[in-house]
Design a protein around this nucleic acid. Structure first.
Lengths: 191, 191
DNA sequence: ACCTGAACACCGTTCAAGT
DNA sequence: ACCTGAACACCGTTCAAGT
């Protein structure tokens, strides 16, 4: 009789940093950041919590840094080809994409804002600068634009997630429209 | 012999929400958010941790909401008198003041960003709108400007606190200048 | 190399009790 | 009314031990 693939510990897919981060992200997205616990994460991975430390020696700190890297660091595609004159358009769609990604993992936003983890955003700033460089925007103007844009996107997402209480009773805020309006302000001012 | 004011529990200044929030803010500013603990807060107030619950029945949640209210809600003065034509100037100095206050309590920034506590920012948005109303800016343009500005200020402060890693080796970022530059972008676009 | 079990110090919070 | 003491369930993390 052929051995059924057994259900026990021996032949599970072995733990890996990717699998850990993924499971953590799922907990945060589904139940909120405060429910992300080493023990619960262990459960989700069908492993004792302590096993995680073998892959993330710096423990929960490293886990949280990993989450930030996962959602905030990816360049969100510099919209490749179009490279050139319409840098405003490129930045606009970059901003929309980036916002979408931040909102998809709203639970980690506080970490993005908080963690002293420069590398995560460095990539992002670099890819923004790249777009501006190809648009022949002068160096120091580019610095200001990149920072303003990134600050705006992150800040606006924060406002969206927490709500400003404007929607008292009847009024409903159309966040998509509002984001685009603000984006226009920022990009129009840029030159 | 006259009784010295005794050192024991009986005649300490009684606990109050203000005293509690103040002590908490001091801990956060001095040691970081993660060190803010009900037990440590109790120590700082020379009281058992459990006494705090008598004044903040909702416990730590309520404490954190209180911190957000304290640093993010105050209107930061709508610069009173000048009321009128130079609303751009008014917004500019409002933004500078607000940034200063956020940075003075950088430890609570993650809470400002995170906490589902609309009331805290509602006041702020209202005072911004007031400035714009006096400047005769049309209603829906005002909505966009207020949001964009607030989002930018919060987002930029977040970037400042965490660092973007741009300052690799030599380059030093002049955050004050950069904030003002972005502010100009936002306000120039506004109309 | 990879994971487990037991243990430690420390959380937030409840509840009955003191004054 | 205001505070304390003891207790409970739950944290992150260490460390020796298993395979």
């Amino acid at each position: 009789m052929v051995r059924q693939p057994s259900i026990n510990a021996q032949n599970r897919a072995p733990l890996s940093i990717e699998r850990i981060i993924e499971a953590a992200l799922q907990i945060v997205d589904g139940q909120g950041l405060s429910r992300l616990t080493m023990r619960r994460l262990g459960d989700a991975l069908e492993v004792e919590a302590m096993a995680i430390y073998h892959h993330l020696p710096r423990g929960k700190e490293q886990l949280l840094d990993g989450l930030v890297a996962h959602v905030a660091a990816a360049p969100a595609a510099p919209t490749g080809a179009a490279g050139g004159s319409d840098w405003r358009g490129a930045l606009r769609s970059w901003a929309r994409d980036y916002r979408t990604r931040l909102l998809a993992h709203a639970g980690v936003l506080p970490l993005v804002v908080t963690r002293r983890n420069p590398t995560a955003l460095t990539e992002t700033v670099v890819s923004l600068r790249e777009v501006l460089r190809r648009g022949a925007v002068p160096e120091d103007a580019a610095a200001a634009v990149a920072h303003t844009l990134l600050g705006y996107v992150i800040g606006h997402c924060a406002l969206e997630v927490r709500g400003t209480g404007e929607d008292g009773a009847d009024r409903v805020v159309d966040w998509d429209a509002r984001f685009d309006a603000g984006l226009s302000l920022v990009l129009t001012g840029a030159a």
